[in-house]
């Protein structure tokens, strides 16, 4: 690991003041420190946000929304009763990610900033346009079975690995950032960038800008009764998704009145297509309707390598997630959150 200077500001203002080009903000460290160890990130200065008390609050807002400080730990948010009751699929997605230990350390802001797991991005000896602009994309003809099928470019086929971001995208979360130029809000849909020909531009953050909170709008809480996250993976737990789906519905009198839908692990950002949601509105919650929504969500999907299976898997997962959400949010968090086997009786 490259040597760095270490500073520990006590306020957002001090953190911003400490920023110099080449510096990095440190949250829980579960992603950044890992990337520093393998030489992918090499900050000159680490600005440790851990003591900034103003970033560590979960606020349920009047009217039904919520504001989550960037330094709130993943596990604290997922287990916050009021939050989980209002936004169950966010809680379920968080609990489907990583491990208990990692969730205790990882922050909400850090989760939002998570880097791709593409093995070539993680390997400083491989060409990677995202890590080293202009060097090429080794994944394109390489080990790409779990890479993008949507929104990719010839320059980059990476995926965003976050679970949490998928329901946040579906629910239209807002990212509050603060930088040298002051505070601003960024819609989550605009926060992560598709690669295009500049995959190194990963997010809408400007140099020195810092995520300080995530807000969920009041209308997002209206989906609490029918909201599920589904994650398909190669182990029963502690594995990144092959595909994942956040699906939320409002159902009145047997008809869907509103829907929210997003896919994870298929693109460089959580994949949301409002046309697919609009297609569901006014319909009965049937498999056929769900399948049409899935097709709409996956429109334009194409393999970027040996990953064509993900398109069909995603289509099926969307239908399943919508069925699960139509069946209702379970009263208690499933034993295996977001798993196909969530409801299965256990054998000892």
């Amino acid at each position: 690991m490259k040597r760095f200077d270490y500073v520990r500001p006590l306020s957002v203002a001090d953190a911003l003041a400490a920023y110099t080009p080449g510096a990095a903000y440190l949250g829980g460290g579960t992603n950044l420190l890992d990337l520093m160890k393998i030489g992918v990130m090499q900050p000159d200065t680490l600005i440790d946000l851990g003591r900034i008390a103003e970033l560590d609050a979960i606020e349920m807002l009047p009217g039904g929304g919520a504001r989550i400080g960037a330094l709130v730990k993943n596990s604290d948010l997922a287990h916050d009763r009021a939050f989980a009751a209002a936004f169950p699929m966010v809680a379920e997605a968080i609990l489907a990610g990583a491990s208990g230990q990692l969730r205790n350390a990882a922050t909400i802001g850090g989760n939002l900033m998570q880097k791709t797991r593409c093995t070539y991005f993680q390997d400083p000896h491989s060409p990677c346009n995202r890590r080293e602009p202009g060097s090429g994309c080794a994944a394109r003809e390489g080990d790409n079975a779990n890479l993008a099928v949507l929104g990719w470019s010839d320059a980059c086929i990476a995926t965003n690995p976050s679970d949490m971001c998928v329901p946040l995208a579906a629910l239209g979360a807002i990212v509050e950032v603060q930088g040298p130029g002051g505070r601003r809000d960024i819609q989550i849909a605009s926060f992560h960038f598709l690669p295009g020909d500049q995959p190194e531009n990963e997010t809408a953050l400007q140099p020195g800008e810092l995520v300080i909170a995530i807000r969920l709008p009041a209308e997002a809480a209206a989906f609490a009764k029918n909201a599920r996250y589904l994650k398909v993976r190669e182990r029963t737990s502690f594995a990144f998704a092959l595909v994942s789906v956040a699906a939320a519905l409002q159902i009145e009198g047997g008809r869907i009145t509103a829907a929210r839908l997003a896919l994870g692990a298929v693109a460089a950002k959580p994949w949301r297509v409002t046309a697919a949601e609009e297609l569901l509105a006014g319909q009965s919650p049937t498999q056929e309707v769900f399948a049409r929504a899935a097709d709409a969500l996956l429109e334009g999907a194409k393999p970027s390598g040996e990953n064509g299976y993900k398109i069909e898997l995603a289509r099926r997962a969307v239908v399943r997630a919508l069925q699960m959400s139509a069946a209702g949010t379970p009263k208690r968090m499933p034993a295996l959150p977001a798993s196909s086997f969530a409801e299965e009786a256990s054998h000892v």
């Binding site: 270490y6 440190l26 829980g28 460290g29 420190l33 440790d48 851990g50 990692l102 205790n104 350390a105």
Partner: peptide, 14 residues
Amino acid sequence: RRVNSCLSLAVTLD
């Protein structure tokens, strides 16, 4: 709280 001590910098733990 349980955490992975490998992903925690000592200097942050004052």
